[in-house]
Amino acid sequence: MKLLSRVTENIRQMDELASADGLLQRQSAGLKLAAVLLYIAAVMLRSRYDIFVVLWLAVIPLAVCLLFHLPLSLLAGRLLVAFPALFFLGAAEPFVDRTPAAAAGVCLTGGTTAMLVLWLKGLAAVTAAFVLTATTPMEKIAKVLRSIGVPRLLTTSLLLSYRYIVLLLTEAEKLSLAYELRGSTRGISPREWGSLAGQLLLRTIDRAEQIGDSMELRGYR
């Protein structure tokens, strides 16, 4: 329940941020997408021991966030989603790779360096992607995708999906709340797994039919 409302609020905040009138928001969406992809590729290219270059690279998108007042709380939420796997995979490195590696006079093992590089790479890539989505509305991203040849079926579905996520999240939230108010606070019990999500699914399919009707009536083919 809390998760559902948090996600809905998150999407609303990102939408507002991307549609605001700022210097980064006014830049071409294509240019921003290309720059972010090139940046992430540059980060990925660095070797597992290249700690200083990766550190400098990670500072760039963080500086952009601070400079253009992008909310760090939203970035922290994304880092929390992306980091668990990176954290555990990185934490295993010092136990496996014990070769000595010196960095700026500090003697670290190869594994510790690789762990820090992996975490920094994760931070850099997530922050860069956040800068892109916090300053570019989904409609503009879809327009860029269309201009580089992505089929219309995919771009139209992407935009519809994005629009209906909030609506369906709200419905799912209502369903969960109604269920909780009837006495269960520990999630949906197995006996109601099918009927609860199934009802939402059937309503979703009916809704898709109605949207199809509306689109055809407005001339969509």
Binding site: Y164, L167, L168, R207, A208
Partner: peptide, 11 residues
């Protein structure tokens, strides 16, 4: 009507 179906099912 695949576009609305895919879009809404994705959501």
């Amino acid at each position: 009507r695949l576009a609305p179906l895919m879009g809404v099912m994705g959501a």
